[in-house]
């Protein structure tokens, strides 16, 4: 049994016909990638966290271009807001050096660079090979409005939603027990 070849209704435009959304996505992608590279190569740990904010905020812009509104808003709220503040809190609490420090990287930095470039290259080659001809027709109306996502979560994904709430409770209790020494060692004294 052979599957019929899928012929697109509209032939996809070539890569030289760049649309407006592609230009915006390309610029946002350059911001995201540049900020991510600066984040992982910066010698100052606090600056590294601030570059991470720019990278994650740019990614929220990418989600907006892809018409995923709610994911973009949640990205700004949770990632660029809460997670980075938590990371900065961790940096301050472990008395990380504020200025530039020479030993933020381990000696196996060249190997890590080779592995990173190899992973990125391999993934990019695989994806280019698989989705070279795929064209993402951006819908006129946003697909990821709060209404649509909320309906999907509470109609089709109720069980994972509840499981995640239990997981958050477990993580909350676990973090509490780990960060209070008088709870965990009370029985051993």
């Amino acid at each position: 049994m052979t599957a019929a070849p899928i012929t697109p209704v509209h032939p996809a435009p070539g890569y030289l016909a760049v649309s407006g959304a592609e230009v915006v996505f390309l610029l946002l992608g350059l911001v995201v990638l540049g900020a991510a590279v600066l984040c992982v190569t910066s010698r100052s740990v606090v600056r590294s966290a601030l570059w991470l904010v720019l990278s994650l905020g740019g990614l929220a812009g990418c989600y907006l271009v892809l018409t995923a509104e709610l994911v973009a808003v949640v990205q700004v709220l949770i990632y660029a807001g809460a997670v980075v503040v938590l990371l900065l809190f961790g940096l301050m609490f472990t008395r990380a050096p504020i200025g530039r420090s020479a030993d933020v990287d381990t000696p196996n930095r060249p190997v890590a660079a080779v592995v990173g470039v190899a992973a990125a290259g391999l993934l990019a080659w695989l994806l280019v090979d698989a989705f070279r001809l795929s064209y993402l027709e951006l819908p006129a109306a946003p697909t990821g409005t709060a209404e649509a996502i909320g309906a999907a979560v509470f109609r089709h994904y109720v069980l994972p939603f509840e499981v995640i709430s239990v997981l958050l409770l477990a993580a909350l209790i676990g973090a509490l027990v780990l960060s209070r020494p008088d709870i965990s060692t009370a029985e051993h004294r």
Partner: peptide, 17 residues
């Protein structure tokens, strides 16, 4: 972005980084 994250995972010394 995944490659950049892999590099940070292997090269950084500070656990928060």
């Amino acid at each position: 972005l995944f490659g950049v994250g892999t590099y940070a995972l292997l090269a950084r010394r500070n656990a928060v980084l």
